[in-house]
């Protein structure tokens, strides 16, 4: 069986951030970690090509990047596709996710990558690819490539694939029936779980019901007339040229924009790029998403101390919980450091 391997500009040795806009390059001779992957895959799988693409290019110009990569892959024969490992590198992880999902959908071959559990690409793409649990940085290269190769060999040899937990990849949202690994019958498993639960000992449910993390609300603001209030929003309202290229759906970033000299957000200067609703009304009056006009009114009345000089914004539609939580932490840190007392969070 033949395989093709995707890596980013950094692991191809082209360069770091300054080369992140690199367009796809196709190598007939393996480069970088593709050589290690190929050595581990032998003799069941031959890795024939390395594809290199800049992280910014594939995440910001996805359509063009995929078009170029498909034009190359269309001429190739392959039964497995690899990407990464991406470790903790967020944009690399997302890039691996984008290419794996697209290759799986177009060529219907197994797609295998590896990321650290904190890589935002995991949450976004774990349903679309076998994403193996990887280390935090490149020193884990050999350790992370090993299970990718071993799993691919099992596929190539037609061996039975075990549940995600045993193979070592993040569950893809697929559940299947299996023989109870230790052969113990259900009534005994119930008793075991029951006694542990009664006695307050740890136990493992067989069906995990996903739970929503409950965040305790912050304490009330003591004196609004002295408080600095910031506007934060998932409404997608940005300067008309969308300078940070925030995605219109499944956002992977946020932006902040200075409003120190403004009393409102005029039409034509700001707009929403949110793809989850009809934008006409909000583009006509961007304050409907970021209510600066109302906040200035309260500021003049002395009801609130001050409107913070920057507003923070992203797009909510399709954005995963993992990204949303990441944005929240990043934004909260900045606001906290700036001495902001409270936030009005507008959604759509």
């Amino acid at each position: 069986m033949k395989a093709i391997h995707y890596i980013n500009q950094f692991f191809a040795g082209i360069g770091g951030e300054e080369m992140a806009d690199q367009t796809p390059v196709f190598h007939d001779k393996l480069i970088g970690c593709s050589m290690m992957l190929n050595a581990m895959c032998k003799p069941d799988i031959e890795v024939t090509n390395t594809i290199v693409c800049g992280d910014n290019y594939i995440t910001n110009h996805t359509e063009e990047a995929l078009k170029e990569i498909f034009a190359f892959l269309d001429t190739k024969e392959f039964g497995i596709f690899f990407a990464g490992p991406a470790f903790m590198a967020g944009r690399y992880g997302v890039g691996c996710g984008i290419i794996c999902k697209a290759v799986s959908e177009r060529y219907h071959v197994p797609v295998i990558t590896s990321m650290n559990e904190e890589n935002p690409g995991v949450e976004e793409y774990k349903a679309a690819a076998y994403i193996f649990k990887g280390g935090r940085k490149a020193t884990f290269m050999k350790q992370d490539v090993t299970p990718m190769a071993a799993f691919a060999k099992k596929i190539a040899k037609g061996e039975k694939l075990l549940p995600a937990a045993q193979e070592g990849y993040f569950p893809r949202g697929i559940r299947m029936e299996i023989p109870q690994p230790d052969g113990i019958m259900a009534a005994d498993r119930v008793i075991d779980m029951l006694l542990k639960k009664i006695n307050g000992e740890p136990f493992q449910t067989e069906l995990i019901i996903p739970s929503m993390e409950k965040i305790p609300p912050a304490a009330p603001v003591k004196d609004l007339s002295k408080a600095t209030i910031a506007l934060v929003s998932s409404s997608g309202v940005v300067p008309v040229d969308n300078p940070d290229r925030i995605q219109s759906a499944s956002a992977q970033k946020w932006g902040k924009y200075n409003i120190a000299d403004r009393d409102n957000l005029p039409e034509g200067v700001y707009k929403t790029i949110h793809a989850g609703f009809d934008p006409a009304a909000m583009c006509a009056v961007p304050d409907r998403g970021i209510p600066l006009d109302a906040m200035r009114y309260f500021e003049k009345q002395g009801k609130i101390g001050k409107v913070y000089d920057w507003f923070y914004v992203t797009v909510g539609t399709g954005t995963t919980q993992a990204f949303a939580a990441k944005f929240g932490k990043e934004i909260a840190k900045e606001l906290h450091d700036a001495g902001v007392d409270a936030v009005i969070l507008t959604s759509t």
Partner: peptide, 14 residues
């Protein structure tokens, strides 16, 4: 599926 408790099967995430 032996809801009475005889089952020696379960489900797992893949």
């Amino acid at each position: 599926n032996m809801i009475s408790g005889y089952s020696r099967r379960t489900c797992a995430d893949f």
